[in-house]
Design a protein around this nucleic acid. Structure first.
Length: 354
DNA sequence: TAACCGTGGAC
DNA sequence: TGTCCAAGGTT
């Protein structure tokens, strides 16, 4: 660590001591680290997800499953339902797998970056973050905040993702041998509250005197590649009702919304050409369309009502009947929660009680 | 490497 | 309404 890097990291830690955000999964600057379980759980939830969105989920999970052993012993469907609405459901599947792997080794998380990296759902970022924050290891944590701060600090003109190698090298040079966890959280707090993507508050920044990017216009760093257009897809979901219950299915364990409880559908997730769904044979009637944006495509999902009498075709082997009165507890991902909301709104309009 | 994988808030 | 994008991981 050269003298300049040491000066910069010391200035950032001083800033963190005074301005650290208070968060449920975090201990105060300089204080002993939190429970590794809580660090790991929060880091997985925070992957590509805002602090505000994570808050209620972190509370719910730690209340329901206070330890990694409790989570490992939990019913998978309950965990997936508890995750519903948070998105990127592979995280929840990996969360269960990781909890069980940790429980199998006695309930103790590995305390090195390399060993953490072997666990399901822990990539370079999360392994380094848990190692640094929970175990005070001098690991270099590089997330989107760190990328932005470092790219600006060094006025890196090379666009992402090619710039990541240089960014990581600079971040490693800045990482202090002590308080690496606080340093990582300081970088992320700085990126979230001062060195923001738009409208950075350079006048409030503790690193401004060392920032090459500020002189060149900090906001334009990091340089990013042009975005690709999002395709439009269309599909149908099906509302099948019987005596105040609706037919739900468990989606396959991989791919879109994998492992989640859902309304049955026509496989829109596998049809990528944007074509309209073919006509349906039988007693099906359109109720309306839900528009939903995913990361890499937009979806128009038409909700179809089944008015036939052949309910035997919906066998418990393939799904389950769920009480409509407690549908909000089913743990449907947002797409299907929207579709269900459309149906329930129509029901209210027509004055039916169910 | 690049595609895939959710969602909601900010502007 | 549209656009951007957040404490990324897996394949």
């Amino acid at each position: 660590m050269d003298a300049s890097a040491q000066t910069i990291s010391a200035a950032l830690l001083d800033w963190y001591d005074a301005h650290a955000r208070v968060l449920p999964w975090r201990s105060a600057p300089g204080a002993p680290p939190p429970d590794p379980y809580r660090v790991w759980l929060s880091e997985v939830m925070l992957q590509q997800t805002t602090v505000a969105a994570v808050g209620p989920y972190f509370d719910k999970f730690t209340r329901a499953w206070p330890t990694v052993e409790a989570l490992a012993a939990a019913d998978e469907g309950e965990v997936m339902a508890a995750w519903a609405g948070l998105g990127y459901y592979a995280r929840a599947r990996n969360l269960i797998a990781c909890a069980r792997a940790v429980a199998a080794r006695g309930g103790t998380f590995p305390d090195t970056e390399a060993a953490l990296r072997e666990l399901p759902g822990l990539g370079a970022y999360t392994a380094a973050a848990v190692a640094a924050i929970a175990f005070d290891r001098p690991a270099t944590v590089v997330d989107a905040n760190v990328e932005r701060v470092v790219a600006r600090l060094n006025a890196i003109e090379e666009p992402l993702p090619a710039a990541r190698k240089a960014i990581r090298a600079r971040a490693e040079a800045l990482t202090p041998p002590r308080r690496a966890g606080d340093f990582a959280q300081a970088m992320m707090d700085l990126g979230a509250t001062v060195c923001t993507p738009r409208g950075p508050r350079c006048l409030l920044c503790p690193l401004t005197q060392w920032c090459a990017g500020r002189r060149a216009g900090a906001e334009r760093f990091p340089v990013k590649p042009p975005k690709k257009a999002k395709p439009q897809r269309r599909g149908r979901a099906f509302w099948v009702e019987r005596g105040g219950q609706v037919w739900l299915v468990r989606r396959a364990g991989r791919g879109m919304l994998g492992g989640m409880l859902a309304l049955p559908d026509d496989g829109w997730s596998a049809r990528g050409d944007g074509s309209a769904a073919p006509p349906l044979d039988g007693p099906w009637h359109p109720l309306g369309t839900v528009r939903h944006g995913f990361t890499h495509f937009d979806l128009d999902l038409q909700l179809m009502l089944y008015s036939g009498s052949d309910l035997a075709r919906f066998a418990p082997n393939d799904g389950e009947w769920w009480d409509i009165a407690r549908l909000d507890q089913a743990g449907l991902p947002t797409l299907f929660a929207k579709a269900a909301g459309l149906m329930l709104a129509l029901r209210d309009e027509t004055g039916e009680s169910g």
